[in-house]
Design a protein around this nucleic acid. Structure first.
Lengths: 270, 270
DNA sequence: CGAATCTTTGAACTGAGTCAATTAAAGTGG
DNA sequence: CCACTTTAATTGACTCAGTTCAAAGATTCG
């Protein structure tokens, strides 16, 4: 379903010090690059890495919290792979309101909305200090002609992005805000697990407003839904740290969909 | 711009004879194929057509109304380009409810969600009798290595799909159902215009239920919103034919977003 | 012509948005 | 390092829009 990143084996040291990911690295300290093999590993395609991909270098770029990596309307030139930190995908609507379209974490690709056209339609802003691998699209494309692994990387990334959007639509189609929030938390949990992190302890790196925009509800509603879930014993909330206490209950709740009555009284224990 | 396909006139004989699109065609009558040049033209990349693309053939496949072209979980092998008719993208959720993720019409690509993986996650069902061009992905990929036009086709299609999903999220994030429906109509209108059809007269090829699922509201609400828009003089509704009477009013209404009060009394004339 | 589905409309209830106020956290500057 | 400011988060009260249930038209199809 949400197959995310890779085999449990290759995501090793998740997002630590980027340069430290390559202990045997002989590059000068200031170079700040990574190899195509790294990129493949981070996207779950480690098996496709080879000597050839080992020789290809991509620049790394640091992005401070709140900084915009991709501006709306910006010329499309590069794709970015999130190496560390996290981002939100945003689009400003006619009124100037910011619509959050999704969140990107380690292993996710940014800038795909520019594919096939000359400028980006969505922006990407760092939620915390982050690092991305910069992959010039033209370069990636020509490399892909000779290295199937890199072509596969692009296809995999776009397919994943499409899948995630479908997931988001499913999430937003929930009639109840509590269900939306529950699904959101389960989504986060699943992505954390796919990266080899704990799927019980979540750190919300985004504000409640961001979540609210993403879910299409008022930000007060997010707060209320979270406290409701706490009272039901599903989760524990401390600031931006969330612990999933009763995974089964959360999953059960999340299934509640339009048209279904709670004929099972267990759900109303409150 | 685009070949004129499927105007209200030839709907009775749904997809017409596709081969008739090429009057100078010398292929045998039964071949039922199209060229890569056709595909490029239909996707708006006609400028990239060349003698080389003219020699590449793709099979055409007819799909009857209500028939499923792509099943959820089906092995990913082909991409499909909608040549005539229309489709809905669907996903069945845990309860067995069908979630409509989007609609595809002439020039749209189907099956992109399988990119980078071995099976489809979303299904595609014909809303009316339809015709698609079948493009085996492996073939398209290898052709793309020598013909940049075909590679561009794939990128363009994925980018377009991503953009459309963002549009859908924007649509679903509207707090009021009336606004959602208004945005939906404007979306349809825009796509019709892009195809060179009238952007005033819309034929809804999907049921209210489909629209409701797509918008994340109850199907009764879609009905109510439509009649409300009629009373406001924005549109005229006859069965599944909709005419956009007051485009400006519809656009104004669609702008209404969370947090804004109708301080302009003009909006409440009802 | 009748069966099935689609669509519209009505009425009641409730959940979510809005407004408002309080508390908590984080960043600023003396 | 601590007042001070700003932003984020929670909670409450009220209102209304949308869901749900129910039923009656309309349309399509066999």
């Amino acid at each position: 379903m949400f197959d995310r990143l890779a085999t449990p084996g290759d995501r090793a040291q998740p997002t630590g010090h980027v340069t430290s990911l390559h202990p045997s690295d002989t590059r000068p300290a200031g170079s700040f690059q990574c190899t195509a093999s790294d990129v493949l590993r981070w996207t779950g395609l480690g098996a496709d890495a080879s000597a050839a991909t080992e020789g290809i270098r991509f620049g790394l770029r640091r992005v401070l919290a709140e900084q915009t990596l991709v501006h709306e309307g910006q010329h499309f030139e590069n794709l970015y792979l999130v190496v560390a930190g996290s981002f939100k995908h945003v689009q400003i609507d006619l009124e100037g309101y910011e619509q959050v379209l999704g969140f990107a974490i380690h292993g996710d690709m940014l800038g795909l909305d520019g594919l096939g056209r000359d400028q980006h339609t969505c922006g990407a802003m760092a939620l915390e200090d982050a690092t991305v691998a910069v992959m010039p699209f033209a370069e990636l494309q020509s490399l892909g002609h000779r290295l199937p692994a890199l072509e596969r990387l692009l296809h995999r990334a776009t397919g994943t992005e499409l899948l995630r959007r479908a997931d988001t639509q499913y999430l937003m189609s929930a009639p109840s805000s509590e269900v939306r929030v529950a699904r959101f938390l389960l989504q986060l949990s699943q992505r954390q697990r796919a990266l080899g992190h704990s799927d019980r302890r979540l750190r919300l790196v985004m504000t409640r407003r961001d979540i609210a925009s993403y879910l299409g509800v008022a930000h007060e509603t997010v707060s209320r839904a979270l406290t409701a879930l706490v009272h039901e014993g599903c989760i524990a909330v401390a600031h931006r740290d969330i612990e999933i206490v009763d995974d089964a209950a959360l999953r059960e709740l999340q299934r509640l969909t339009r048209g279904r009555l709670p004929h099972d009284p267990r759900e109303l224990v409150a």
